[in-house]
C-alpha cells in the first residue's frame, strides 16, 4: 500500500510538472504569435488592462492634488524648499519667482513652437530607466489630438522621436536613439551628412571614415525634420588601424531630465535632400546669429563713427551696403 501510494504521488507530481511546462509553452507561443502577428491587437488589449495602473501612475506623478504632491519625493521637495527659502531671503522673493515664471514660460513657448505651427504639450510618465525599452510614455493620447507618426520635440526645434502608438489617454514614443534606429544627421565642424545609429539611453553613434576630422563638441542636427540641434559629439572613438572612426552624440537635455515634450499635430512624411539642406542652412543661421538691439548693433550699413579732436569734431556716417 505504501509503495502504491508513493508511486502514485511521484506520478502525480510528474504529471503536474508536465502540465505546468505545457501551459508555460502554450502561453509563450500564444504570446509570441500575438506579439509578432497582431501587435496592434496586443497593444490594444494590454493598454486596456494597464489603463487603471497608468492612470494612477499619472495621477501620482503629474497631478497637482495635495496627496500626490505630498508623497512625491518628499526629501527632494524638502531640500528644494530649503534652497528656495534661502534664495527668497537673498533675492527678496518676488524677483526669483518672476525669473522662474519667465523661464517656465520660455520653456513652454519653446515647446509649443514660435513659428506658429500647432503642437500638443505632453508630460512624460515613463522613461527608459523605468522600462527595458528605449521609449517614452506620454500622458496625452488620441482624445487630446495625438496622432501616430507625429514628431516629438524637446525645446523649439529638437526632434527626439516619433509617436509609435496611441491609446485614448496615452501615447508611446519611439526615440531616434532606439538601438538599431537609423537617421540622417548633419555634423557641424566637418560639415558632413552621415547616418547615425541609435545606441539606446539617448545616445547616437555616427561612423565616418578616418580622414574626416571629427572632434568632441561638434554639433549634430537631424535635418530630415527640423533645424534644431540634437546634441554634440561627446566622445570620439578612433583607432588608426581601423578604416572608420565613431562619434557618440548625447542630447543637450538628458533623457532623465525631460519632463515635458511637444508633439506635432500631423504625422511625419518623407523628407527630401532639399528640405534637409534648407534645415541645415537655417540651423547655421540660428546657431551663429544673435538678436541684437538696433541701438547696440554696429554694422557697415548703419554705423556711425565719431572722433573728437582738440580743435574740431568730425562725424562720419557710412552707408555702404554689403
Amino acid at each position: 500500500m505504501k509503495k502504491f501510494s508513493s508511486t502514485m504521488k511521484g506520478s502525480s507530481r510528474r504529471s503536474s510538472v508536465t502540465k505546468r511546462v505545457k501551459l508555460t509553452i502554450i502561453f509563450a507561443v500564444f504570446g509570441a504569435a500575438l506579439f509578432y502577428l497582431v501587435p496592434r491587437l496586443l497593444f490594444g488589449v494590454a493598454a486596456l488592462v494597464m489603463l487603471p495602473i497608468v492612470a494612477v501612475q499619472s495621477w501620482f506623478y503629474e497631478s497637482s492634488a495635495s496627496l500626490p504632491q505630498f508623497l512625491r519625493d518628499r526629501s527632494a521637495l524638502v531640500a528644494e524648499m530649503q534652497q528656495l527659502e534661502q534664495q527668497v531671503l537673498e533675492h527678496s522673493g518676488d524677483q526669483h519667482s518672476l525669473t522662474l515664471l519667465k523661464e517656465e514660460n520660455a520653456e513652454l513657448r519653446s515647446l509649443l513652437a514660435e513659428d506658429g505651427s500647432e503642437r500638443i504639450l505632453a508630460g512624460v510618465i515613463a522613461r527608459p530607466n523605468q522600462l527595458p525599452y528605449d521609449v517614452l510614455m506620454l500622458d496625452q493620447g488620441r482624445v487630446d489630438g495625438i496622432v501616430e507618426g507625429a514628431p516629438v520635440y524637446i525645446g523649439n526645434q529638437t526632434v527626439i522621436g516619433y509617436v509609435q502608438s496611441t491609446t485614448r489617454h496615452t501615447a508611446l514614443v519611439t526615440l531616434v536613439t532606439t538601438p538599431g534606429f537609423s537617421s540622417t544627421v548633419f555634423v557641424f565642424g566637418p560639415d558632413i551628412y552621415t547616418t547615425a545609429v541609435g545606441m539606446g539611453g539617448g545616445q547616437l553613434r555616427i561612423g565616418v571614415p578616418q580622414g574626416i576630422e571629427l572632434n568632441e563638441g561638434d554639433l549634430v542636427i537631424v535635418p530630415a525634420v527640423t533645424s534644431g540641434v540634437y546634441g554634440a559629439v561627446t566622445h570620439v572613438e578612433s583607432s588608426p588601424t581601423q578604416p572608420e572612426q565613431f562619434g557618440f552624440v548625447s542630447p543637450e537635455l538628458p533623457l532623465q531630465g525631460i519632463r515635458l515634450v511637444a508633439v506635432g499635430n500631423t504625422a511625419l512624411t518623407g523628407s527630401s535632400f532639399e528640405t534637409a539642406q534648407a534645415n541645415v542652412t537655417a540651423a547655421n543661421t540660428d546657431l551663429f546669429s544673435v538678436p541684437v538691439p538696433d541701438d547696440v548693433l554696429v554694422t557697415v550699413g548703419t554705423s556711425t563713427a565719431t572722433s573728437t579732436g582738440s580743435t574740431s569734431t568730425t562725424t562720419a556716417t557710412t552707408t555702404t551696403d554689403l
Binding site: 508555460t24 500575438l34 497593444f43 494597464m50 515613463a126 525599452y133
Partner: peptide, 17 residues
Amino acid sequence: AEIVLVGLLADGVYGTG
C-alpha cells in the same frame, strides 16, 4: 504560468515596436 501572460501584457504596452 500566468506570469508569462503578465509579461506579455507589459510587452504589449511598451514593446510592440
